[in-house]
Design a binder for these strands. Structure first.
Lengths: 177, 177
DNA sequence: CGCAACGTTCAGAAAGGACTAAACGTTGAG
DNA sequence: CTCAACGTTTAGTCCTTTCTGAACGTTGCG
């Protein structure tokens, strides 16, 4: 394998780690992303130096995130994978996943706190504090709701490309490229 | 401490964990965020159940991220902290930090791979693969550059509020609130 | 001075995740 | 039917990160 590919894969490993994913995921995506033809599981094992089990597990996570696709070959029992080349779709996949898993949970957690506060209000000897806390929690709730909307808006764009990005206030700076 | 505050703090712990930060950071921010008056380190220790060392360390990280501010009191040796109430400023602080640390590093890593590919090109027996890889890496490089611009654009807005959000394509959906 | 009140630091423990290796279930060819 | 080629699962190990507890340096009061 080329020296450059090795270095690239190592970079993907770092990036995956930084975004809270297993390093192996980054490594495997790097393998597939830089292959001009579909890659089998064994090839990934060779190129990545990871165990077969790890590759098997992680490649399916990548598939769930729509970062790679399985390519079927009639009469071949091996699984071949190709990378989703549109990186903006990749971030969409990740965002979708995270939104489903965590955003709603965070929102409901905050909402529950608000409900509990209402129950406690009557029995409190310090109403001022309660009022303050309710206001704060309410602000955080509306913050989460807005955040969820923003992400939802991004997900609605079927292509997060230059034209879409112009809405992000990017018109201001037009240095390089 | 109120039952609701406890629940809220637990939620912050989960959220912090999800975003790749120490749980204790979330807990401590929760403590301060829901206090109507500046909080001393000892009070945080009481309310969070964490050790003094952990609180001391994590509260300073929060300060560096501009999620809390120190409030000086003349003639009092204790350190008091108040929370940054504008949650959009909070995400800005976090984004700024992450951009500094990781974005540039990711970009240079990809760029290095590209350079290595150029060196290897001549000595390769498989020029087709090299050409393919160069194209792929180039795409990722331009992706990172764009991503960096987007984040930069967000950071330029001094208030990421409703008016700013309208640029994000949020006009389309106007359900609730 | 001496002591008590603070915040900080650091070695070590604890916890949580991720990877490995080996056993396993399935499928298809001979 | 038997065996080899696959991908999957899981128990166990390793490694990283985080938290704790105690020692430490500083500061100001009595």
């Amino acid at each position: 394998m080329s020296n450059a590919k090795n270095h690239f894969i190592q970079g993907m490993s770092r990036i995956a780690d930084f975004w809270g994913m297993p390093k192996a995921m980054g490594v495997i995506y790097g393998c597939i992303y830089l292959s001009s033809c579909p890659v089998s599981l064994d090839e990934m094992v060779d190129q990545s130096g990871l165990s077969k089990g790890s590759v098997s597990t992680n490649v399916r996570v990548l598939e769930r995130l729509q970062m790679v696709r399985q390519e079927f070959r009639p009469g071949d029992r091996k699984d071949y994978y190709v990378a989703e080349p549109d990186l903006w779709r990749v971030v969409r996949g990740i965002l979708e996943q995270r939104r489903k898993v965590e955003f709603s949970s965070a929102l409901s957690s905050v909402h529950e706190s608000l409900a509990m506060l209402d129950v406690e209000e009557s029995s409190s000897e310090n109403p001022h504090e309660i009022v303050f806390q309710r206001e704060r929690i309410r602000q955080m709730e509306s913050f989460f709701r807005m955040l969820d909307k923003v992400v939802g808006g991004i997900l609605l764009m079927n292509k997060l490309s230059a034209s879409a990005l112009s809405r992000f206030g990017m018109e201001k700076q037009n240095n390089e490229d």
